[in-house]
Amino acid sequence: MLSCGYAVQAAGTLRREEVDGRLEPLLAGTVSRSRWARTQAATVVAGLVLVTVAGSVTFALTAAASIGDASLAGTLLRDGVAYLPAALLVAAVALLVYAAAPRAVPAVWAAFGVVLFVEILGPGLRLPGWVLHLAPTTAIGSPPTGRVEPVGLAVLTVLAVALGVLALAAFRRRAIPVR
């Protein structure tokens, strides 16, 4: 969830650059819209991967140390990284909202709040399955206590890539700035 929050924040930062008037002069120069959008999307994804991997490593090492079982670290690291496709999907949605409807970027925080609520409290509150599936993390399975679902990982990855491509296309077509 920390990685998902990072993704939403990163999209909000892109919007802030635009609202503060720093994007328009940049695009009026030698930087093309496509290049800027690809660079920013790559930066968001790289940061997301870094946050996910760093969080997974920290969790794996501290959990293994607290339990006293070093062999557990590898399993926990793998299971933590398994959440990357879900976080990438959240990032792709945030970038698509920024690209297609920039004024709606704050609404992505509300969507993140729903995902967070469903992910953390949904099972305990015994919410219906369709509500639980509002959180992309449910498609992964239930690591580290259960099995990782390879089909879920693949579907989330394909959706993230498709939405990312749509975000880049939408950004190239919209007016700048949108205040």
Rank of each mutant, 00 (worst) to 15 (best):
136 P>F: 05
158 V>Q: 01
57 V>K: 02
70 A>Q: 04
61 L>E: 05
130 W>V: 14
33 R>M: 07
160 A>N: 04
176 I>C: 02
35 R>W: 10
30 T>Q: 15
173 R>Y: 09
24 E>H: 12
123 P>F: 06
19 V>S: 09
54 A>R: 04
168 L>K: 02
90 V>S: 05
79 D>G: 06
138 T>R: 15
58 T>E: 02
116 L>H: 02
124 G>Y: 12
102 P>H: 09
110 A>C: 01
10 A>Q: 05
153 L>Q: 12
115 V>G: 07
88 L>P: 06
101 A>P: 00
115 V>P: 06
171 F>E: 10
3 S>M: 02
1 M>E: 03
20 D>Y: 10
154 A>Q: 03
112 F>C: 07
53 V>Q: 03
84 L>Q: 08
96 L>P: 03
136 P>G: 03
23 L>M: 08
63 A>I: 04
134 L>I: 08
169 A>T: 12
30 T>M: 12
79 D>N: 15
62 T>H: 00
33 R>V: 03
99 A>L: 06
19 V>A: 13
70 A>C: 00
8 V>P: 11
149 E>A: 14
119 E>A: 14
145 T>E: 14
40 Q>F: 00
3 S>V: 10
81 V>D: 08
92 A>C: 04
134 L>M: 14
173 R>L: 14
179 R>D: 13
83 Y>R: 12
126 R>V: 14
33 R>C: 03
5 G>C: 09
113 G>E: 07
38 R>F: 11
60 A>N: 01
140 I>R: 03
160 A>T: 01
176 I>L: 11
25 P>C: 03
45 V>L: 15
162 A>T: 14
170 A>P: 00
50 L>W: 13
14 L>Y: 07
108 V>I: 11
9 Q>S: 15
107 A>S: 12
98 Y>K: 02
133 H>G: 10
106 P>R: 04
127 L>V: 12
31 V>T: 15
1 M>G: 10
46 A>N: 01
82 A>G: 12
121 L>Q: 05
152 G>A: 02
169 A>E: 13
33 R>D: 07
98 Y>D: 10
134 L>N: 07
10 A>H: 03
88 L>V: 06
71 S>K: 11
133 H>P: 00
155 V>K: 07
173 R>Q: 14
110 A>H: 00
163 L>D: 02
6 Y>V: 11
144 P>Q: 04
44 V>F: 11
74 G>E: 13
153 L>K: 02
107 A>C: 08
57 V>C: 01
22 R>V: 00
45 V>E: 08
26 L>D: 06
15 R>E: 11
26 L>H: 08
10 A>D: 01
104 A>L: 15
74 G>A: 14
38 R>N: 13
148 V>R: 11
22 R>W: 10
83 Y>H: 13
79 D>V: 05
18 E>V: 05
102 P>L: 09
21 G>W: 01
73 A>P: 06
1 M>Y: 03
80 G>E: 09
150 P>F: 04
133 H>C: 02
141 G>R: 01
177 P>S: 01
169 A>N: 09
153 L>F: 05
10 A>L: 05
111 A>I: 10
149 E>V: 13
